[in-house]
Computed example of a mutant assay.
Amino acid sequence: MSQLSEQPTEGPVPTSADVARLAGVSRATVSYVLNNNAHVRISEPTRRRVREAADELGYVPHAAARTLRAGHSRMVLLPTGNMPTGPLHLRFLHELEAGLRHLDYTVVQYGSLGLGADDAARAWAELRPAAVIVPGSVPLAPQGIAVLRRSGAKAVITLGPQPVEGAHALIMDQREVGGCAVRHLLERGRRRIGVVMPDDPGAAVFAAPRLAGARAAAMTGGGRIEALSLRYDEESAATLAARWPELGLDAVFAYDDTYAMLLMRALQDVGVRVPADAAVVGADDSMLGRLLRPRLSSVRMELATAQPLADLVDRLVRHPRTPPERHDLLRARPVRRESS
């Protein structure tokens, strides 16, 4: 006959009243300390005593209850769709999350693929976030902004190439990326330039303005642009490389470093010399591109902000009646290496 192992019994969930009794303070003091309320003066010994009591009891504040009391949470919601994964966006996310955590916010990513603009806004509003930062690849309309505002969101912020009416805008104007790449190629004497357009709907929000920027730079500098569709697989790259002689191009801006590396390998496989026959430029300035031979020229993108991003979000949350602001974040510069 088998004997079941004894399972530990769970005791009652500790409350703020339990913490207050153990620390010898009021429940209000517990709330002020554990919610990091900087507007109430509490001595450091008292704060330490409350935290030690909470640790001993295993108590943490109830986020849902705090949200009900305040009408909103300390949550900053970051909807995700077909978000880019380049170094710039990773730096953006890391800087934002670290800064907001320091300010006692929690950044929550919310999968929004498959949701229309109205359904997405309603789904986000159910969580009662203090702020929502919406990437350009995720749909948002003025009606959705109104829904979020009515649900208690203090700041609705878009992150993308174009602003949305009624929201604050963090602008990453991708036209500058394409323009920067083409100006570099024109300076190197190239005039017949292909621009890779990924055969991926999720990349369109970035690829289309990069192509527009490339065309504007070519028009000014006397170059010619041809858009080149490319799937991210070896077969598609080989097909495009086989057409290279008939295309008559002497350079290519390949959307980003991953597409540049894919196409450069295919061009080399069919005997196209890089850069003698075709100069190649990517974007993102990835480490892997520097390890290729020839080393990959690229466009380095950097954040250009007057204040830390977390401080900007916090200011907009604390002043919810601030009229919509626009902040241009993207700065691009060419990084010349052997491939161009």
Rank of each mutant, 00 (worst) to 15 (best):
A63L: 08
F92T: 04
L291R: 11
D173L: 06
S2C: 04
R293T: 15
H62A: 14
E338S: 12
A131F: 02
R336A: 15
Y259V: 14
V60W: 00
Y105S: 06
A218Y: 04
G114Y: 10
V182L: 05
D284K: 04
R150C: 04
T158Q: 02
V132C: 14
H94T: 14
A70L: 12
R318T: 09
G248S: 12
A227P: 00
Q307A: 15
Q268F: 03
S31L: 02
L303W: 08
G136M: 10
A153Y: 07
L96Y: 05
M219E: 15
I225W: 02
A64F: 03
A17L: 10
A212L: 14
E338F: 06
E246I: 12
M1G: 15
H62N: 15
L303G: 06
R265N: 10
S43D: 11
L34A: 00
Y259G: 09
V33I: 14
V33C: 01
E56D: 14
P323D: 06
D104L: 00
L88R: 03
P324Q: 00
M197L: 14
R91C: 10
R243W: 10
G271V: 06
R293C: 08
L247T: 03
Q307P: 00
D199P: 05
L96I: 10
R215C: 01
V252K: 10
V13D: 08
F206D: 14
L296F: 01
M197C: 02
L57I: 05
R336T: 13
Q3A: 15
V317F: 13
A214F: 01
A146M: 12
W244L: 02
G282I: 01
L262P: 13
E126P: 01
P8S: 13
R243G: 00
L211R: 07
